[in-house]
Every structure is written in structure tokens, then in C-alpha cells.
Design a protein around this nucleic acid. Structure first.
Lengths: 132, 132
DNA sequence: CGGGATCCGGCTTGATACTG
DNA sequence: CAGTATCAAGCCGGATCCCG
């Protein structure tokens, strides 16, 4: 594995998310973060306006959605299309790179949803053992 | 999409991570959280002891690793094998379910690492435009 | 409508110290 | 070694007000 020190010394090493200093870790956090994954997942289904997205991602605040979208746009995963009309209209959609990332995320999410009964069973067993 | 209200009313609906009330969202956060993804990724390579793991996941504190492992164990993704010796020896490894999750996570991580140059380019373009 | 700016409470996080 | 306990700091997230 690449250590923090090795990476700092040699910028030609491959990106290694396990290393604290690697920029890939920051992007991974944008993608897998609390709202990043859900936002990418929602956008996988099409193009949406700000408040549409907000309704789709149940529970996200305006601030967090805005922040999340900015981070994803900066990383080149989301494209922001603003029309200078009045009232303004802004649409968000995935870039090709964003689509690939979102697809993998969706795969993970759907796999997880399909196995939630196993997870819930495991939790019950764990909690019972702990109480005993 | 399943709304929070629909889920609350009908427990037989499929799990939907986009709904605030769905337990799958909590598990997704354990998996994709800041340390969850890296811990699962590290464990994909084998069985490790607590401090080995800590060194592999560069930057994680004792408390966070401990907390992360507990959550993943409770969700049935990680198995904890403790030997009552002195000094104590505890090994962590993925369960079969954990392996499947970790594999998808690794896929995402490796894809991302392979595209980091694109991400970094996108960031530069974004920042330049913003400064102008 | 689509946000940005600000304020603020609280949960999360990270050091540090301590224990079996 | 493998953690737990404690505490301070800070970031997250919600509420509110604002503008174009």
C-alpha cells in the first residue's frame, strides 16, 4: 500500500484512497457522503431542477443539497444548466463520468436494499447477544 | 418512488434508501461513511487485527475505527473473532455478505482512482471559471 | 424559483488518558 | 494489544432572511 509519505514524495504514484494525503479520498467522500450518494442516485434517473431534487432526496436541506451539488459539479460529476430567465430555471444532470459513478452506486444501493432483511436479522441477533 | 409516509403505513413495501424512514439508509451510511468504505475496502484483502487495520486505514482514530467496526459487525458485514488470551488478540474479517458489499465498493474505488486525473482537471476548470 | 449569507445548537470527531 | 472514557473543538445541519 502507498503510504502518506510515499505519496507526498512521488506524485507519479497511482492514486490510493487509503492514503490520507491522496486527493481521491476527498472525492470518494463527496460521492459516498451522506447526501452525495443519494443525489447521484436520484440524478441517475434524469435531469432535475433544484426543488425537484430536494423532494426526491427525502430529508435533505436546501443548504446541504446546494453544497452537495457544488462539490459534485466541481469534481466533474454533475452538470449545472442555468437559464437566465425570470423566474430562473436551473437543471442538474449527470456528466458521462457522473453516470458511471452513479451506476456503480445504484448497483450497491440495490444490492443493499435486496439484502436488508439479512441486515435486520443480523442486528437483532447482535442486540440480543448484547443484552444477555 | 416510495415516500416516507407510504413506508410508514405499509411495512411490506420494498426497502427504499431515498426514503428518510427506511432502515436501508442507515446501513448505506455505515457502508459509505467516511471510515466505513475504507474499512470494508481494507478488510477485503484479508483478516486483520485492530491495530493492523488502523495502520491500513490511514488517518482513522482508535475511537472511530472501533465505532465503525461495531456498526459493521451489527449490520452483519464484519465478523469479530476474539481470543481470550493475554495479551488479547482480536481478528476482524468480512462475512460473506460483507464481501459482496466490499467488492462493489472496491469496484467504485478503483474506478474513481483510475479517473482522478479527469476529476482534478474538472476541478481546475471549475476554479478558474469561478476566479474569473 | 434558485439559491447565498448568517446565526446557532448539537452531534460527530479527534486527542488524550486510562484499563484489562 | 484492544479497546473505553472523557473532554474540547468544530463541522453539520436547520432556520431565517435576503436577493436576482
Amino acid at each position: 500500500m502507498t503510504t502518506t509519505q510515499e505519496r507526498a514524495e512521488d506524485p507519479n504514484l497511482p492514486y490510493d484512497v487509503f492514503s490520507k494525503a491522496c486527493p481521491s479520498r476527498g472525492t470518494l467522500e463527496h460521492i459516498t457522503g451522506r447526501w452525495g450518494a443519494l443525489t447521484l442516485g436520484a440524478l441517475y434517473e434524469g435531469s432535475f431542477r433544484f426543488n425537484e431534487l430536494r423532494r426526491r432526496v427525502d430529508g435533505v436541506s436546501e443548504k446541504m443539497l446546494s453544497q452537495t451539488l457544488h462539490a459534485l459539479e466541481r469534481d466533474g460529476l454533475v452538470h449545472r444548466e442555468a437559464q437566465p430567465t425570470n423566474p430562473p430555471r436551473v437543471d442538474y444532470e449527470l456528466t458521462p463520468l457522473g453516470r458511471e459513478v452513479a451506476q456503480r452506486l445504484i448497483g450497491l444501493i440495490q444490492f443493499l436494499e435486496g439484502r436488508m432483511d439479512d441486515v435486520l436479522d443480523a442486528r437483532r441477533r447482535y442486540d440480543e447477544k448484547r443484552d444477555a
